[in-house]
Write a protein that binds this DNA or RNA. Structure first.
Length: 418
RNA sequence: GUGGGCGUAGCCUAGUGGUUAAGGCGCCAGGUUGUGGCCCUGGAGAUCGGGGGUUCAAAUCCCCUCGCUCACCCCA
């Protein structure tokens, strides 16, 4: 028996309304804030991700699906959405458009990792990137959009965390300070943190281990070690968020796993979650990325939001979502002549935009009515020998249970007005 | 990659060494020669995740393996 590969899943009809709902709302907000849709390939040159996300990150180091194609290109299923959009920005000369260029996307992303609650090998994100403007007002506007989008879904008890992790001017000095702080404490650090000290010191700050939390509390914070430009940027962001009435929580231990982030970083999470992989959305500024990828120095900011995690929280919070409309009409028949009439009636109903179903395989009337009931149809049209003789159909109201005889020629017109 | 929990029909669950593995939901059919939702009756559907071992006898005990799941790392 074949099964869906580990970490992947079929999004079955019963879950589709959630995804459709989220996509609808996302597209609405993207449009509302002036973001234009873009779609990039499912796979890209592997170098794009190595250069942008960072060689030392887990995403590149151990989570990418990499393969060689028959033309000896080394490709990777995209593990994140920002780098491809930046590649497209550069490739299509979008620096010649009015800046910032605002782009939004839906994408399947692939990471080879052990699945658990809210984490998969293939998942879906809604993301947006605003490229070509360094003003913190843009940061605020983007955060405003994602905040309104997520709260607009009906999710409650969510919290927005923000932080600033500086820029190439101020971060090196901060990282030195951080390392020096930890250097003489290695005997009380957990094993993971010892590795982090060497490999990715920023990560020291979000160690969840009880034993390390005291160290984290006392550790120097990036937001207090910013250069004047970054400090101004962070202050302005907070001013603008206040102005927009977006509730935020400064979180000095919020760091992001991708190398390209600068200045502003943020995450949206459900409140009071004990588990760890709870971020519904995350993003930040990446002022150096376009240049790294071969474009002119261009500031930018973006975010990604996980659709599966939104679904998870919508279900957890029992948020009512729009359900798809059932067919209005089910057409039941008895006999081969009536079957032909039934098919014609269905065709005419559909031509008039009336969603219709019929059974097609000569089932008993009882079975057909049962199927009609299950389908949720408002009405059932019944056509058998009696109706054929008189050129009529029987129209049954499925919730009332009553029925009437109507001319076969009028049935479409009548149903159009029901 | 590391650690915990769990694998019995499509779904949920009973059975923890002894005949043909039980029930509920769902599905199909009949009760109603053309009428759903309630009820009644019947039916289909399970190599008890897979392999090996112990035993007269294994869903049940042991070993291995695969899968699912939760957590860690990391991330949406």
């Amino acid at each position: 028996m074949y099964k869906a590969p580990r970490g992947t899943s079929d999004i079955l009809p019963e879950d589709q309304p959630y995804f459709i709902y989220i996509q609808d709302r996302a597209a609405y907000y993207a449009q509302l804030y002036g973001y234009k849709p873009i779609e990039t390939p499912v796979f890209e040159d592997v170098g794009l991700f190595i250069r942008s996300v960072g060689e030392e990150t887990d995403i590149v180091d151990k989570e990418m699906y990499v393969f060689d194609d028959k033309g000896n290109s080394t490709l990777a299923l995209k593990p994140e959405g920002t780098a491809p959009v930046c590649r497209a920005y550069i490739e299509h000369g979008m620096q010649n458009l009015v800046q910032p260029v605002k782009l939004s996307y839906f994408a399947s992303l692939f990471r080879y990792e052990r699945p658990q609650a809210g984490r998969f090998r293939q998942h879906h994100q809604f993301g947006a990137e605003a490229i070509g403007d360094s003003d913190p007002a843009l940061d605020a506007e983007l955060i405003d959009m994602i905040w309104n989008f997520i709260t607009g879904l009906g999710l409650t008890s969510i919290v927005l965390y923000i932080n600033s992790i500086g820029c190439p001017q101020c971060r090196p000095a901060y990282l030195e300070k951080l390392k020096n702080y930890y250097l003489d404490k290695t005997d009380v650090m957990c094993g993971d943190c010892k590795t982090r000290l060497d490999k990715n010191p920023l990560r020291l700050l979000d160690c969840k281990k009880e034993s390390c939390s005291a160290l984290v509390d006392q550790a120097p914070k990036s937001s207090q070690n910013l250069c004047p430009e970054c400090a101004d940027h962070y202050d302005s962001l907070k001013t603008y968020l206040n102005l927009l009435a977006i509730p935020y929580t400064e979180n000095p231990t919020l760091v992001r796993g991708l190398d390209y982030y600068t200045k502003t970083v943020f995450e949206i999470q459900p409140r009071d979650e004990t588990g760890a992989q709870v971020a519904i959305a995350g993003g930040g500024r990446y002022d150096g990325l376009i240049e790294i990828l071969g474009g002119k120095p261009t500031p930018a900011i973006g975010f990604g939001s996980g659709m599966e995690r939104m679904v998870l929280n919508l279900k957890k919070q029992s948020v009512a979502i729009p359900t798809p409309a059932p067919p209005k009409v089910f057409v039941a028949y008895l006999g081969s002549q009536a079957k032909q009439k039934a098919m014609g009636i269905c065709r005419d109903l559909r031509k008039n935009g009336i969603a219709s179903m019929q059974s097609l395989s000569d089932k008993s009337m009882k079975a057909q009515l049962k199927q009609a009931g299950k389908s949720g149809a408002t009405y059932t049209i019944i056509i058998g020998e009696d109706e054929l003789k008189t050129g009529s159909v029987t129209l049954r109201d499925m919730s009332e249970g009553n029925q009437q005889s109507l001319s076969i020629n009028e049935i479409v017109t009548i149903l159009k007005h029901k």
